[in-house]
Structure formats: C-alpha cells, structure tokens
Design a protein around this nucleic acid. Structure first.
Lengths: 243, 243
DNA sequence: CGACATTTTGAGAAGGGTCAACGAAAGTGG
DNA sequence: CCACTTTCGTTGACCCTTCTCAAAATGTCG
C-alpha cells in the first residue's frame, strides 16, 4: 500500500498548484489518502460541475482554468456570485441540492474526487475539514466584499474592480512579477459573463471598458486580450469613482 | 469536575436556542466543554462585537436580538452584508482582522466565549469544527442569494424579499405558527439600516413600503411595527416584480 | 410640551437599462 | 480558400428607475 500511496503522491510533485492548493494545507497522512482517491481530468468550457439537473456533483481542486458560480432564477435572470481560480476548491459539502450552479468558464484541469470520497476523507482526517473551513471562511469574506460592490459601487468602479481581480489572478502566464504596473492577461469571461458578475448589462460594461481605454488606463487587443497600462490608476478607480 | 460540568450544562436546559444553536449539533462531550467556557451576557444596541478598532473579538451564539454585519469603506459608503438571528453563530475564526464589522442591531442576549477558547475547543473536538463548517456553508449560501438580490432585483422586489426574511425570522413572539398568511413583528432595523441591507437609499425604501401599504399587502403601526397582511402576495413580489 | 431624530413625501437630475443597428470575429460548408 | 451564417462586442438614442436634495410630517424622549 505504501507503493500505491507513494506513486499517487509522486504525481502531485509535478502539480501546478501543489504549493497553494488545499492539499498543501493538510497533514501528510491526509494528503496521501487524498492523492490516492483523486483523478486528474480535463473539463470542457460550459460543462456543469454541480447544480445541473442530473447532478454530477463534482468535488475538486482547480489546476488550471476558471469556474463560475451562477445563481439563476426561473425567470431567466442570473447573477454570477463567485469565481474560482487555480488552487481553489470546488464543491458544496453536506448538501445535495444547493440552489447554485458551478460551470466551467474556461477549459479546466481539475483534480477531482466524488462527494462520497470527500465524506470519508473528512471523517478520517479532521484537518481536511479544517482546511475546507478556512477556505469557506475566505470565500465568505470574498462574497461579502463582492456584496459591497453590487450594493454600492458605480458601473465604472465595478468594471475596474473586476479588472483588478482578473489582473491579480490571471497574471503569471506571460508576465514578470516585478512589473506590477503593466499586466497583460486573457479575460476568462465573455462580456455577458463579465456583466453577470457585477450586476450590470453587457452594454454598460462595454461602454465602461471603452471609457477606461479612452483614459489610457487599459488597452485591448483581440477581444479576450486585456492589457492594463496603469494598474495604480485602475485600483484607484475601483475604490472611488469620485473626481 | 462532573459537578461543574453538570451545573454548566444545567443552565443550558432553559436556554431559548438550546434546540437550534450550534450547541445542539455537537457531541455531549463537546457541548459540556463548551457550556463550561461560556457566559451569558447582554449587549446594548450599537455595540461592536468585532471589527472595530480596539477589537474585542467576541465569539458567541445569539440567544435573542439581531446582529448586523457591515462592510464599510473609508469614503463613508457602507453595505450590510449579513444579518444574524437567534441561534446563529457570530465570529470569524482563524483571522484577526476581517475587513468586516459585526454590530448589535438590537439589544442582544449573547452566549459568548473568547477566540482563544474557540481555538482550544476546536482543537479538542473536531465535531465543533464540523458544525461551524456547516453553519459557514449555510452563511455562504445565504450570502450568494443575497448577491443575486443586490445584482438583479428591482427596488420593490428587494424590499419585499427583506420583509419576507424578517417575517420568517422575527415571528413567534406573538404569532401562532398556524397562521402563515398574516404575520406581525417588530422591525429589527431602522430605515437607514434596512436600506443598507438591500443596496438602496432610505427614501427609495420608504417609497416602496408606502407602495406595498397602498397595495394592501402590509400595514404599519408605529414606525417599527410591521404587519404582513398577505404573505403569499409578498412572496410573489419578492421573486418577480413583473405584472 | 418642546427639541431632536426618524420617516415620509416631493421635484428634478442622472445613471444605467432597453431596444436597435452596426461591426468584428469565429465557425461552416462548398 | 472564400462566401455564408452565427455569435459576440460596440455604439447610439431614448426612457425609466433610482438617486439627490429639500422640506414637511411623524415619532420619541426629556
């Protein structure tokens, strides 16, 4: 069994999120058990991880890509209430029917496991539950800052805030970390999804992006390519639109 | 020590939230340890439980009253991002400086304990941590439904939603549970706080309440007294304002 | 009863929504 | 490889909801 567990863990050595994922915050014993139960899989953009009718109910840690959490109502309105990035945990423990849908916003690499396996691991290793608790508390903090944005910020502040978020979480693909003022990245979301994140219509988002371009703070190449030219200015706008 | 723990637990027998609080969802051993560490106290309206500068950092379970969680920015704007009612857990484990403030919206009865005690109890009893995890996940679900409201609902839907929430959580003081269509209760929040919950100005809230009164769906006595005359209609409005 | 805080009502302004047209990019099939 | 369709993003014009500022009304408490 040591052979199995060692080889399972060995695969983790080359994992892109080994130092920041949930798995890095638990005991070796728990990490070994987890590694043995996990499988790497690729998920196509648009695929539902949980919350859809047939309920695949996936758990996992994102290795690459972005997941959107969508709160949708029968009348067609929907709001994106969370985004999960590489190293984040995806899943809703202890509840079969969350009124919430998780969908791959981009193609994903997922280190995934089933709900049953999560339950038995949580039972055997309290430190896994503690790590999930810490992540959940952090998600709650994020959700509450997001609520401030939805309740109180202007359109321009919202767009700037979201661009700051993306710039911080999507960087590293082609950037040197030293250059913190100019950041280029691929937008993980369509304009429609972008708007659904910040509680606006896509036309409004488009206008605000144009406005930021005219101010010289950002530039866009092909549709999804975003270039922040003055991160400091963007941050300032994200906090107060007043001038 | 059994004498001590028994007498500590004995006090719980008369507690108003003994059957719904965190303490009812953990093992007897954990509940005994918790009971021994806890003290009942009364908190005045407006007092800060955590997040203020001198940082009292209270943990506790609400026995009576309402706590508001406020996300405030330096420029003066603030958004209420959560409300905690009797039997809810208050506190932010594992983080000294949440960017968030918890304040007594009404006078409170609190079954409280310190952060240090929480840490040692969590260490000794994994089931306490599991119970907190479940509460936190439920809080996250609530926050995300709230986000939908802030991002997508109209003023009238927001006011109706919040009244439904209050009606559901403030009832029981003078109501028979059989009569689910007419509910009377005391509003735990001022108009200003009410507005801060749903991302509107207080004038807009006031107008919407007037409008609901004119529709015959609610009635108000003195300022804080609210009477829902047609709960079904209120629910319907809370979900879609369309007509 | 009088002073203060809170709530309601009013009128006007503005931010963002809606509808519609246009342009750009990407997939499709010959 | 190129027309064709389809999807996605941008821009424009107009309108409606909500915000803002101001005043009146109501409630609260000494």
């Amino acid at each position: 069994m040591n052979v199995v567990s060692l080889s399972a863990r060995a695969r983790c050595q080359s994992c892109a999120v080994r130092s920041s994922g949930l798995c890095s915050q638990i005991s070796d014993a728990a990490a070994n058990d987890l590694a043995r139960s996990v499988h790497r899989r690729r998920v196509a953009e648009g695929q539902v991880l949980f919350g859809g009718a047939p309920r695949p109910k996936t758990f996992g840690i994102i290795v690459s890509g972005v997941v959107k959490l969508v709160q949708a109502e029968p009348d067609g309105r929907s709001q994106i209430v969370g985004l999960q990035f590489p190293s984040d945990f995806v899943g809703r423990p202890y509840l079969d029917d969350a009124n919430l849908m998780a969908e791959a916003a981009t193609e994903l690499d997922l280190c995934s496991f089933s709900g049953r396996i999560f339950d038995s691991l949580a039972e055997a290793h309290p430190d896994i539950e503690r790590a999930v608790l810490k992540r959940t508390l952090a998600d709650l903090d994020t959700a509450r800052e997001w609520m401030f944005m939805l309740g109180r910020k202007t359109a321009q502040e919202r767009v700037a805030s979201m661009l700051v978020l993306f710039a911080e979480r999507m960087r590293g693909i082609e950037d040197d970390p030293a250059n913190t003022d100019k950041i280029a990245f691929e937008m993980p979301l369509s304009r429609t999804d972008f708007a659904a994140c910040i509680g606006l219509r896509l036309e409004t988002v488009s206008r605000q992006i144009t406005s930021l371009k005219n101010m010289g703070i950002i530039a866009t190449g092909t549709t999804r390519h975003m270039q922040v030219k003055d991160m400091a200015a963007l941050r300032q706008i994200s906090e107060s639109c007043a001038g």
